[in-house]
Amino acid sequence: MTDISEVAAHEAVVSGSESDDGGPHGFSMVVFSGDLDRQIAAFIIANGAAAMELPVTMFFTFWGLNALRRDGPVPIANPKTTVEKMFGRMMPRGAEKLKLSHLNLGGLGTRMIKHEMEKKHVLDLPHLIQTAREQGVHLVACTMTMDLMGIRKEELLPGIEFGGVGTMVFASDNSRSTLFI
């Protein structure tokens, strides 16, 4: 039998409230991609959904996790293996370091789009993330892929939640929409 307190604890981690008609009410996303443009899209949608007062859960896995990394090396409790260190160095460290999925042009395209975004007052990715957090969007990091790629909890932004596929499916089951980005 499922322990009620366990269910309640899960409820707190992910969005799972019900609407007035008793149906699922949340909005959830799997953020798999570490591309700058896809991450911007994901966070604009998350902010829009949160503004609509939907409980929002974003589940970050694989390359998507890189958006949540802190900028620069962070002291960690347990030493990494050589392969983990390599992954850590080769993958972008944080939202500022992500690249466009198209027309990156060795970084030139990414710099150009950031310039245009600033000129046209589009919030940049770090601000979109900050706003999402202020609005109570749940950011959940996939512990399995963290382990796989050697990303430690202390290397991610403070206040990130952690979970596995069960957490993601729970959030999705309590949502009217789930996106895979």
Partner: peptide
């Protein structure tokens, strides 16, 4: 004015 999506919505909220 001058704020891009989703800015106006967030400011309204």
């Amino acid at each position: 004015r001058g704020v891009a999506c989703p800015g106006p919505l967030l400011e309204a909220k």
